[in-house]
Amino acid sequence: MAASADLTPVQPQHRFDEARLAAYLADHLPDFRLPLNVQQFRGGGANPAFLLHAPGRSYVLRKRTLPKKGLDIAASTARDFGLISALHEAALPVAAPRLVCADASVIGTPFYLLDHVPGRHFRDPNLPGMDPKQRHALYDAMAAALAQIHALPPAQTGLPANGDGQDYLVRQIAALIEQYRGNRTEEIAPMERLLDWLPAHVPAERTATLMHGNFRIDNLVFHPAEPQVVAVLDWDLALIGHPLADLAINCMPYRVTIPGMGSLQGLDFIESGIPGEADYVAAYCRHAGRPAPEEGGIAHWNFYLAFALFRVAVMAQGIVKRSQAAGNGTAPPAPALKAYAAVVRSVSHQAWHLVDGGDD
């Protein structure tokens, strides 16, 4: 079951008519029985998740409060459910899909339902409470799960291809540049350089795979006792893109410290048992059937890292801009706002150093 630390009562802004939901499930799920108890998972942002307890069964309900670009909420919800259904059919580690509901009158918005997958859920990438051998095995399992995702033929996902991984990078960089320019609150020299450098240096490798888009250890459920990923969560950002961009995003805890999120910066990797970035990337290559990095298995790795770092900086800048626009009444505390502004500066310097080799 989910740990109690992962759950809260349903938050006021996400409450719905639980009796109406229970009646709907009783009509549409053959094995559903009353009574129904509802709790909310922590986090989730604009796409919250809820744990539904019923006699003998537990489910996860996901709903969207914001649609994907170009879709309404009903179509976005159907897309998410269709992807998870395709991944489950392909034997990837995802929860079994149960139903999708387009009728907004049930809980106020379309939603879908999955089986709840019991197991271990770690919010901190440092894996406190584990011994070095356990930590190493869990990170190896994470690398294996990411390689398994990337090995699925894109046609089996049901997602639109929209070109290949190179096209994905071109589109994403253009969108991030536009987003950053719209949210810019000060001129940061390395960010200005990255705005020109990144679109001019997209690698020519034409490959396309399923990308999770937010593959982190806190989006994984591990087997209760074994070093095995039994469910990958949070597929809201999934699309057909570039596997190395996905891997670089996965490696961000090695590079970045973001307020409220765990980081691997400054960790003693030998003592902890957690592989360093190079060893983790080598493990991914092994599971993905790529040559080791030192044997040419990953070309232009610094570009993909710079892209992922730039993405983090743009997201942090968006928080700074929105916080300033919100005014004192709803903005985060000044220290938090200052911390996000510092993330933009430090991460952009790191990204530019990777691609330029400079020290500014």
Results as ranks from 00 to 15, higher is better:
S4N: 09
G241A: 12
R123F: 13
A248P: 01
R20Q: 15
E18N: 00
I240H: 05
G44R: 03
H223W: 03
D115I: 06
N219H: 12
D6F: 13
C251S: 14
G260K: 00
A174D: 10
E192A: 15
V232M: 08
V60K: 08
L127C: 12
G108V: 12
F269H: 13
L29F: 11
V106I: 15
A102P: 00
A336R: 01
A174N: 03
G165D: 07
A342V: 06
A74G: 11
P30V: 08
A104T: 04
A19Q: 14
A288N: 07
V232K: 00
V170D: 10
M130A: 15
A49M: 10
N250R: 00
G70S: 08
P224W: 06
Y112W: 09
L25D: 06
E295N: 14
A104D: 14
R120M: 12
S346V: 05
N37Y: 02
A3K: 08
A316M: 07
Q148C: 05
R345I: 11
V355Y: 04
V314K: 00
I270M: 12
N162Y: 13
A161T: 03
G119Y: 06
H136R: 15
D167L: 09
Y340V: 01
R64C: 07
Q324M: 14
A316E: 04
K133C: 10
A245C: 10
Y139A: 11
A231Q: 04
D167F: 07
G327F: 04
V100K: 01
A145I: 09
G163F: 11
S323R: 01
G43N: 05
Q39Y: 04
D124G: 05
D359T: 14
L127I: 11
P291E: 08
F16A: 11
F41R: 03
L198N: 09
V230T: 15
L354A: 13
G329W: 07
I107A: 13
Q179E: 11
V320Y: 02
Q148V: 02
M211Y: 01
L138A: 09
R311H: 13
I298Q: 03
L244G: 03
K321V: 02
N37T: 15
F32I: 12
I73L: 15
H212P: 05
K338C: 07
E186M: 09
Q179V: 06
E226H: 08
F307A: 12
L83S: 07
A238D: 03
E271H: 13
P132Y: 09
P160A: 15
R120G: 05
D279I: 00
R64N: 13
L354W: 08
V202R: 02
Q40T: 09
N126D: 01
V320L: 03
P154L: 12
L83D: 03
T185P: 00
P224K: 02
H201M: 09
D131L: 11
V281Y: 04
A155D: 13
P203N: 07
L354I: 11
N37E: 15
R64A: 15
P291F: 13
P153R: 02
L195Q: 07
S76F: 09
I270F: 14
A102Y: 00
A325N: 05
A96C: 12
D268P: 01
Q350M: 10
